[in-house]
Design a protein around this nucleic acid. Sequence first.
RNA 1: GCCCGGAUGGUGGAAUUGGUAGACACGUUGGACUUAAAAUCCAAUGGCCAUUAUGGCUGUGCGGGUUCAAGUCCCGCUCCGGGUACCA
Length: 887
Amino acid sequence: MDFNFSEFEKKWQEHWLANKVFSSEADTSKPKFYCLDMFPYPSGAGLHVGHPEGYTATDIICRYKRAKGFNVLHPMGWDAFGLPAEQYAIQTGTHPAVTTQKNCDNFRRQIQSLGLSYDWDREINTTDPAYFKWTQWIFIRLYNTWFDKELQKGRPINELPIPENVSARGSQAVREYIESKRLAYYDNAQVWWCNTCKTVCANEEVLNDGSHEKCGTKEVERRFLKQWMLRIPHYAERLLNGLNQLDWPEGVKDMQRNWIGKSTGAEVDFNVEGIDEKLRVYTTRPDTLFGATYMVIAPEHALINSIVTADKKSEVDNYVRAAALKSDLDRTELSKEKTGVFTGRYAINPLNGQQIPIWIADYVLMGYGTGAIMAVPAHDTRDFEFAKTFDIPVVCILDPKDQADVELREKILKGEACWTDDGEYINSSNPELGLDINGKSKSEGIATVIKWLDERNLGQATVNYKIRDWLFSRQRYWGEPFPIIHWEDGEISVVEDENLPVELPKTDKYQPSESGESPLANATDWLQVTDKNGRKGRRETNTMPQWAGSCWYYLRYIDPKNDKEPFSKAKENYWMPVDLYIGGAEHAVLHLLYSRFWHKVLFDLGIVSTDEPYKKLYNQGMILAFAYETASGSKVPSDKVEEKDGKYFHIETGEELKQIVAKMSKSLKNVVNPDDVVDNYGADSLRLYEMFMGPLDATKPWTDTGVKGVFNFLKRVFYFFADKNNITDEAENTETLKALHQTIKKVGQDIEDMKFNTAISQMMIFTNHCYKVKKVSRETAETFAKVLAPYAPHLAEELWSIYGNDPAICQQPWPEVNESYLVENTFEYPVSFNGKMRFKLELPVDMPKEEVEKAATEHENAQKWLEGKQITKIIVVPKKIINVVVR
RNA sequence: GCCCGGAUGGUGGAAUUGGUAGACACGUUGGACUUAAAAUCCAAUGGCCAUUAUGGCUGUGCGGGUUCAAGUCCCGCUCCGGGUACCA
């Protein structure tokens, strides 16, 4: 009897696939469970061991939920648009669709070799015209929607009220007004352009060090280009509020909140001396207005020319020109050294009538708030740094009192240090104007000043968000074409629904043009269109970013073959929302935020039935690998390392190396290929090891010996339970029944809590128990196989059939826990003296407290600890501990 | 800088949320089987000290505190990981 895992794993995989064991249909008579994995980008490199981590976790949950009677939707597909296939096309001329198909086939083969219980009839591919037809369809819905601020709701564009002053200016004005309200719009945008990729990239793809995330080069610069943008900030408040109801990791919610970046404050108007313009600033701290000693406007501010005095003009011009040449990046990279220039003009502080100088500095950004600030160096660290650099007075108006130590407080009061926390106001009163916040706290102060400003029309409470319009176009070939036509008269129209999809043109030139137009501009036949009146038009040549397809794929899984609509309303109503969504934390912000945004628009339009798409979210941790480095910190590839007595040495130099944990990489030669693991140890071993390594959300290093450990466990299970000599028809003994039911309970509970590692350990404990008792009943063996099935489904099926049952164990119900086997009559109390455990004492659980005390203190082992001491107190916690306090 | 998360044996990690620290596994050591090795099975295994066994001390990044009792709670740090960064 051999543990021939390759043979039976293949056998059962074929059985599941051929019998469509895991296909599911909407069935309102059963409770549903929609369990989703973040679908992969099918890269040429194939599956990484990181992929099966989340997939195994969801698979275990799905198999468990099916056994618990749920109708489970568990699909898989491919996020297959993307740069690598296009780059490969540029180099080799192979059409990206060919490369993509090959990679998808390989991914599917690899995923199927792991025995994951996907419903393969629902497989989707974002590059399939039958799929992206509906991506385009949704884009058209976005284009034809405006956001009603009052109702906080997206509405069809034909319901947009046109203000009279707009309609009075004619049809062109009306058109512009409508364009300005659509959720999708086409406009000149200053965008990042990557000279290597020949494409624009989103802000978030440009890393802090100035390199492009996708290609790694630093060839990014600013350019103005006509681009598609989505007005995601209109949904900022909805996206923010929606988070509260979600069962997501707090960390992810925080990241989204930070990204949306809501701040409340006030806009305040300042009079400017000598000109008839007001300067409007945004501040979150209107309470510190008494401490404003200067103002700063961004170098791009519209009022610069009227504010700058003649004698300062050339100096200011130079500064503004220099700032324009700097990228945002340079402006932030030199963050510590603040630069700026005085405009020569003064504004008037509305609270005390004092003159305050207006400066221009690039630490103020035009894109946020009003592009102008009042600077309060005493209570804002950035303003403080600037004031110190340029010798501007610092006036403290908030006394930290005892929140700062004496020395620091002294400095703050003298304007030699900055204080941003709460305190008590000083120097903050103007009786003539009826404003006095002295002695108040920060929150009171803010409220009082806003009210005061509002009453005098000097300012009003305002909310600002960091989140910006979403740059939604790329100059690439391998993406969804926009269903858009630009007509020669300047009109933009969308392609009619019945003419979707707009497919990609055939071409053999994948190289983007220098001008920045995508390769689609080369496809002349495809490009030019004429309407029925002979008007000439040109198709949009940009394509959508990779985010597009992943924004709504979870909806298409519900009804993947529907060619009349993106999905049936009834099916959507049954399956949504996604009950559990597992994927990497790298998508914590963008994918999840974008996708929530689309979903909310679809919800507002009545296309989906839920406000949020993903009820519960969980991030699996990253799988790393051990790597080695020299004392100086240079990395050494794993094949150049040898181990001796737990220490590591360089094979060639003999130098002792330090073992570190790092990302798997080709250069470190520590990449683990799932195919190799499946070949050597089987799919069940791979699955089990990925789950046994540690908590699902932890970052953890891969070790080959660890795989051997779980492989060994599976072998022990097989050799014990497949051996008929160990299986009896006699009644089970109570100890085994107790161990078994503990295992059913623990494993079930741990799956619900997603604590897979401890569930496996419980199954190991049970197996060790079986080896000790030598024989178990057939019923015990079959029950254990059912418990094992979600984790090691192939082995469980094999055992199930060895016992003569018909397939399949994965369609058997989850065993019931019989609590009566678990009842404990006695408990082995740890007896402590002054908190230190000294001996153990088995006592009935229902023994009265007094008797327990007596039993403990009169026990012979206790005498040693009581000798010459006095008992002051005895703590008895039933079924926990006995603690005797002595003096 | 700010916001999260983390630190437990030689290693990966457990610990019912304040109640026996180190489950389970890897590794190591010893034993059984074998001509031998591998595989398998059994046993031991935090550190230190002691011993005739029973035993004692110590121990969850560091320093304080609360408590009968702290890996767990509170205060103050150190280091590591992730996110974000002149957002007024």
